[in-house]
């Protein structure tokens, strides 16, 4: 009751009651206390002599990385192409599998809220809960090392991402448009085609391009565990302490990500 009656029969107004103010102070205090105790936990296991010479070590590695070994680029074109392919094909496969899952998971399009929807949600959650690097580790041991393992790893991780964001978009559509098309005597597939798909198209395009953009980054990493692409070269260079090669690879990844970011911004702008 933030409205307070004053002595001379007027009203005073505060945003919060005194009790709410006190509770907020206690909340903030608990947060600060937690931060302090976490800091203590963290510093207990830190070997400070390593931390104090960190600037020297860092400078040493940067020194060894410079200059990048530019002629190594000749060996990077092919892995770079692999990386882009892993991302693109992985995204494509994820779209093909994720879109039906999204329709099954959305409350307003699922055939059964009690049976089908939980299964679809389980697929989405299990796909999202496992990082693509872990997927890649598993798949490399199942499918053997190579690009295929990378594609499947990226695809499996992306199903959940695309499925989740898309089913949220489906649940937010305007129902009167669906009513209008239904009222004309259209069948369920026609309702989907005429009333639902046009409404989620901008979201779908945005989600797909955004995921592709993320996948370019991730496909460079899944190579670290043997799933092909730039990561494979990175791992080889790191293992042989070939720092100039490492710096070149990092530069190439940076350039690729910049390019994909620019491209995805363009595409999103064009579609929406």
């Amino acid at each position: 009751m933030p409205v307070i009656r004053t002595a001379e029969d007027g009203f005073d107004w505060r945003l919060r009651t005194p009790r709410a103010v006190l509770l907020r102070w206690v909340g903030w205090f608990a947060l600060v206390a937690l931060t302090v105790s976490c800091w203590q936990l963290m510093t207990a296991d830190t070997i400070w002599s390593f931390v104090t010479d960190a600037p020297t070590q860092g400078a040493d590695i940067v020194d060894r990385m410079m200059p990048p070994r530019w002629d190594y680029m000749a060996k990077l074109w092919w892995p770079l192409w692999d990386t882009i392919n892993i991302a693109t094909l992985g995204t494509l496969a994820a779209v093909i599998m994720g879109v039906p899952v999204a329709f099954l998971a959305a409350r307003n399009t699922t055939p059964s809220v009690t049976l089908v929807r939980p299964v679809a949600l389980l697929i989405i959650v299990s796909s999202r809960s496992i990082n693509s690097l872990i997927w890649a580790l598993l798949l490399v041991s199942i499918l053997g090392p190579g690009v295929l393992a990378g594609i499947v790893a990226i695809a499996l991780r992306s199903i959940g991402f695309i499925g989740k964001l898309l089913y949220e978009a489906i649940e937010e559509i305007d129902v009167t448009q669906v009513e209008a098309v239904t009222a004309s005597g259209a069948g369920p597939t026609q309702v989907m085609d005429y009333a639902i798909v046009p409404q989620i198209m901008p979201a779908f395009a945005g989600i797909t391009v955004f995921r592709w953009d993320i996948n370019i980054r991730e496909s460079a990493v899944v190579g670290l565990v043997g799933a092909g692409g730039l990561g494979l070269q990175l791992e080889a260079s790191l293992n042989t302490l070939a720092w100039p090669q490492v710096s070149l690879i990092l530069l190439v990844i940076l350039a690729t990500v910049l390019l994909s970011e620019w491209l995805s911004a363009k595409v999103r702008h064009a579609i929406i």
Partner: peptide, 14 residues
Amino acid sequence: MGMIFQEFALVERL
């Protein structure tokens, strides 16, 4: 039975 709506209920992007 043709139906006409308050907020028109056209499919906006078509």
